[in-house]
């Protein structure tokens, strides 16, 4: 039993070698090409990532009617922003929904079963979101979890926890920070973090 949790000293080197071997064999056998994995990774550098979500939130901050449309029909509202990359309704974004923080409500998105995440607006999930400790604890004690992220939510604010257990990929519209009046959308977008768009943080201050 005590040996079960042992990892070899060269744990990472072994995994690196194994995945390289797998990739090599799959290329040789014609399953994928030598460019396939990099093709995938490039999509998450250039097309699907938090840079999209930040622009969407910035627009919601400057345009309350857009924010309302985003809450009512996220895909349609996102499609209004014609200079976003292709694929905003693509993989893991086919059915996205946005919930807004503010007016006595703080939203937190989790996936207790796995790690469902809105790829087009936020890219790939960070380690904390995929961590079974986070996934488990957030379902019962979200305020304590948020405290560990450095966020205190007053008891008078309702905490809504959204478990992404079917087709919806949730994200949060964080509150616009104080002291940001007159900032451009580009400047506002720089304040929006992936953590703020999942509800474990507020947007950065100006």
């Amino acid at each position: 039993m005590t040996d079960r949790f042992h990892h070899p000293d060269d744990r990472e080197a072994r995994s690196a070698a194994r995945v390289r071997a797998l990739e090599a064999l799959l290329i040789e056998k014609g399953v994928i090409t030598s460019k396939t994995v990099d093709t995938v990774l490039n999509v998450f550098e250039t097309k699907m990532g938090p840079f999209n979500g930040a622009r969407i939130v910035a627009r919601a901050w400057v345009d309350p009617a857009f924010k309302q449309r985003l809450i009512e029909d996220a895909p349609a509202a996102i499609a209004e922003l014609t200079d976003l990359p292709e694929g905003m309704a693509g993989a893991e974004g086919e059915h996205m929904r946005a919930v807004a923080n503010g007016e006595g409500v703080h939203n937190l998105v989790i996936c207790t079963l796995c790690s469902c995440y809105p790829w087009p607006v936020l890219g790939l999930p960070p380690y904390w979101y995929k961590d079974p400790t986070f996934r488990s604890r957030a379902a019962r004690e979200p305020r304590a979890v948020l405290k560990e992220f450095g966020l205190t939510v007053p008891e008078s604010t309702e905490v809504k926890v959204w478990d992404s257990s079917a087709q919806i990929r949730w994200f949060v519209i964080p509150e616009r920070p104080a002291g940001t009046e007159g900032m451009s959308e580009g400047e506002l977008a720089a304040l929006v973090t992936p953590e703020a768009m999942m509800g474990v943080a507020v947007a950065a201050s100006a």
Binding site: G123, S136, E195
Partner: peptide
């Protein structure tokens, strides 16, 4: 997994 107790602190690692 939802709601298990005794799990200890969250590791806040922001890298993917």
């Amino acid at each position: 997994l939802g709601g298990l107790e005794g799990l200890g602190p969250i590791t806040v690692e922001t890298r993917v």
